[in-house]
Design a protein around this nucleic acid. Sequence first.
DNA 1: TGCAAGGATGAATACGTATACATAGAATCG
DNA 2: CGATTCTATGTATACGTATTCATCCTTGCA
Lengths: 361, 361
Amino acid sequence: MPRSGRRRPITSVDVAVAAGVSQATVARCFNTPDVVAPGTRQRIEAAAERLGYVPNAIARSLKSQSTNIVGAVVPAVGEYWQNVVTCFSRCLTASGRQLLLFSFLDQADVDDTLEAVAQYRLDGLILASATIAEAQLARMRQTGLSLVAFNHPDAAGIVPSVTVDNEAGSAELARHLADLGCARVLYVGGVAAASTDRARFRGAARTLASAGATCNYMEAGAFTYEAGYKAADRVGQMDSLPDAIMVGGDEVAFGMLDGLRQYGITAPNDLLMTGFDGLPQASWAGYDLTTLVQPAEQLAEHAAELAARGLDAPSNVVPPSVVVAGTLRRGRTTRRGEEPPARPQARAGRGCGPQSRAGRG
Amino acid sequence: MPRSGRRRPITSVDVAVAAGVSQATVARCFNTPDVVAPGTRQRIEAAAERLGYVPNAIARSLKSQSTNIVGAVVPAVGEYWQNVVTCFSRCLTASGRQLLLFSFLDQADVDDTLEAVAQYRLDGLILASATIAEAQLARMRQTGLSLVAFNHPDAAGIVPSVTVDNEAGSAELARHLADLGCARVLYVGGVAAASTDRARFRGAARTLASAGATCNYMEAGAFTYEAGYKAADRVGQMDSLPDAIMVGGDEVAFGMLDGLRQYGITAPNDLLMTGFDGLPQASWAGYDLTTLVQPAEQLAEHAAELAARGLDAPSNVVPPSVVVAGTLRRGRTTRRGEEPPARPQARAGRGCGPQSRAGRG
DNA sequence: TGCAAGGATGAATACGTATACATAGAATCG
DNA sequence: CGATTCTATGTATACGTATTCATCCTTGCA
């Protein structure tokens, strides 16, 4: 039995010995192949292949002072964030980098997490949360780590930041509603303290005001389905319904839609509704929500790139910030007047009694 | 201006000098604090704090031959996987480990990805995909890396594997339907080639057969919403509807539900429906799907632990596998007879014409 | 033919930490 | 008080790679 037990992993030295060259030449062969003689290279490659050599990224990182890894600190819950994480991963993988993921449930966990993060000498770190304290950002900035705030507009003065244009996007949704004749609009935000929430409400209120419409604010309490579902109770018990509800996040809007249905209130029949984010589910036929689609791929790409090339500014220069425009997606929830197009059977057979299956085998 | 330019990061040597001790003592102070004299320890901690020293995990990993990082290779799309990734992250963070995430869109990317993965000397690697070739698994096994297959039952003979009990879970769903009197059941799978899909169909078919019911198979083509939505067309055009549809994944089921609605077919009115996975959205009021809930946290925990403690088996021992039972979640989609409880307004006001807003202010 | 230039490679070192080994002082005991 | 054990710390080395510098050999040119 020749191969018993756990054998020592193959190093570049092993390859060097097998190929009859020095370790330095092996390293060159993998990093700058053009400076090594063709014959030698071939011999080394053969030896490496035969031994099953695979370069040790840890050692490389130690020497080169760069890990090729970008970290991301992301909230553990929410459809939106899950979507963003996937985008990060795709972008980084595409550019040959890796993603070290830290997700946190409680805000208190973030401190511990950041401490752990700092130990790995990451090429950059993406902080994706609208609720990280600015004092903490400033402190992290000191470590020399290249930070990027994602979806946290207020951080723009402290660290580079990448966001969708929340205010303009929300304004676009508001204008859309105003054009449809809405005069009384209710804005349902997620967390009033979040900078994204404030920006979105600002855009909506400003635009609606200039169109002569009113815009009240209601806080759902979280950017979750459940929060939206519960907030629907408050709407359902109002004396008079608004013409439209602008919800600060798609997931909250889904909850709101489902919650309102319990009261017999549906969009677009009884009121119009918009969301924000452009989650995949917004396109599902079950919701078909009018929303502002965040260019997630593009945002993630910017964040990844900004994080990877650390800014060499000495810390007194104002960091660059990226604001990308979203695009309006028009769904059924603001499609008033135009009756649901092209589903004849649906109208005949839906939900109006047991005869719905008539005419079918 | 004392601090211009990019200053060299602080190392344990710097701390040692500042505290008037040797580098070794500093290292001890951070790893085995009890063997260093209290006075010395205090001096070192003070110096470290003052200089802003943070241990270099890269160097530590190189020396200790262990990175404290677990990798995960996960498909880039799908609600299910996004959910699982979050669970991985939570589990690993909780045990002081980190998650290196690799997501892939195309199966072809996996090869490249695995190559990149191998360079980082991970403590373990979780392969989360039902479609990784078994030959590839065997090859990876050779590298000495501690592998765990997640949701890939067929891999159980080659590498340790963690899955929900697909067959038993599906059987439980089937029995539920049989008890409700379903005699003709249609099983809509995602990808027929996937081992999870096969196991789930097997459990359903076996149980239904022994209950005297039939169970046909239809392939949606993918585990996605869109696939389910399209598959609904084929169902809608059938001459006679089955009593129930068992869908191989929740996301596919959502698509199926929304698709069937276009044909005026709804659950539980016209047929019953079950899903599989127990996604958060299955609990949303909009779908309220009967499904088999995978204990995602628990599965992730097992996978993380199995990956972290590399198996010391020399590669001829059969690896241990973990199979966890899921739990049935009963939703509206199999709630026949019992009329939708407690939403009186809903029945009166929904979708039957413009008078729906009557009686409201 | 002799010399310069350039190309290919080897030797040596540094990256920052953990740890085996050595050592010096303190404490214990006869 | 000398021998011995124990505790606290310093010295030295290894982890695996990238890179600088030096060296040798080939080639071109006068």
